[in-house]
């Protein structure tokens, strides 16, 4: 007597909501400036510079889907950039592609180690992730300042020119950072939606007790979400460093807020139990598009913040009302 309606094919409004908001915004942008809707602006410029936040936000999606929070991503980013740049500088004038490849590996490793530290303190120390990552945020920021001797760290212009195409180059016409975001998102979506680990992340985020009573090693799942977050920051930094070839104390500042905003706009709930990878990427892009539209428009420079905030709230209203309808 079971009644079952197959609804798999139904258009999923929940997942589409951030994209609808993005589409509306892009339509708006088209009126603001004739060059807004060009490949050079939207892809070459805006999508490319979204890449760091997008990749970090993908990592944050895992942490938040499991009910956690990581405020330290901006500082991890600065610290990883610092370590990477110092390593690259140590190579001297002969440093080349091989060294850059090793530096990329190093960045991901250091990122993962920072995530591991966050995860261990949270799970083994049984401390709220808010406090733990607030602490590591301050610690890593200070370690970066120490590495940079209070200023900035830069690599030689020659080495930078070798590494630069990783940010500014394209492959079949698509900027490499954009391709990287797509690749990271694809792997992340597979991990979250198709694997046992991803299922456990969602379970832990929606109810830790149920997960524990179902035999899931809750702490191990949480630990891995922080490590994934760290790896994502590492990947993001390997795209950030070739852009300016340097990092200073402004590197990664407020990135945690941007990442968390992107995740929430994307439809992942702060309280955990859902995770929307594509939505997160759309959310990150949406934030950057807002900034782009405002610079291209002739809004009074002092009012840009107000307009920006208003647009974000309207975008959330559009998105949430669509989510409720489905």
């Amino acid at each position: 007597m079971t009644v079952m309606t197959k609804t798999r094919a139904r258009f999923n409004l929940k997942a589409a909501a951030p994209f609808v908001a993005l589409f509306v915004l892009i339509a708006l942008g088209a009126f603001v400036h004739p060059k807004f809707l060009t490949f050079d602006n939207l892809v070459q410029n805006v999508a490319t510079r979204t890449s760091f936040i997008a990749i970090i936000a993908i990592g944050a999606t895992f942490v938040m889907a499991s009910g956690g929070l990581d405020l330290s991503v901006g500082s991890i980013a600065a610290f990883v950039a610092g370590v990477m740049l110092i390593y690259l500088k140590s190579g001297g004038p002969e440093a080349g592609v091989g060294m850059i490849a090793l530096a990329i590996g190093l960045a991901i490793l250091v990122g993962a180690a920072c995530g591991l530290a966050n995860g261990l303190i949270t799970t083994v120390g049984k401390i709220e992730p808010f406090i733990v990552t607030l602490g590591t945020m301050v610690i890593l920021r200070s370690l970066f300042t120490y590495l940079a001797n209070g200023g900035s760290i830069s690599i030689s212009p020659d080495l930078k020119d070798i590494y630069a195409p990783v940010y500014s180059g394209t492959f079949v016409g698509v900027p490499i950072p954009v391709l990287t975001v797509l690749a990271v998102a694809a792997v992340a979506a597979f991990l979250l939606y198709r694997t046992v680990f991803g299922r456990h992340v969602i379970a832990v985020g929606s109810n830790e007790d149920v997960a524990r009573y179902s035999g899931i090693a809750v702490n191990r799942v949480k630990l891995w979400t922080y490590i994934i977050q760290g790896i994502c920051v590492g990947i993001a930094i390997t795209l950030y460093v070739p852009r300016l070839g340097s990092a200073n104390s402004a590197t990664g500042l407020f990135w945690e807020l941007q990442a968390i905003t992107a995740v929430v706009i994307g439809g992942t709930l702060l309280k955990g139990g859902t995770g929307r990878i594509a939505g997160t990427v759309a959310g990150a892009f949406l934030l950057e598009v807002i900034g782009n539209i405002l610079t291209l428009s002739n809004v009074n420079v002092y009012l840009i913040g107000a307009v920006q905030g208003t647009i974000i709230i309207i975008a959330m209203l559009v998105q949430r009302s669509l989510m409720r309808k489905s």
Partner: peptide, 16 residues
């Protein structure tokens, strides 16, 4: 007063 933010603004100026 940030390198990254100035980069973005300049990119957009060049478009605008």
């Amino acid at each position: 007063w940030s390198r990254d933010d100035a980069f973005k603004v300049m990119q957009d100026y060049l478009t605008k």
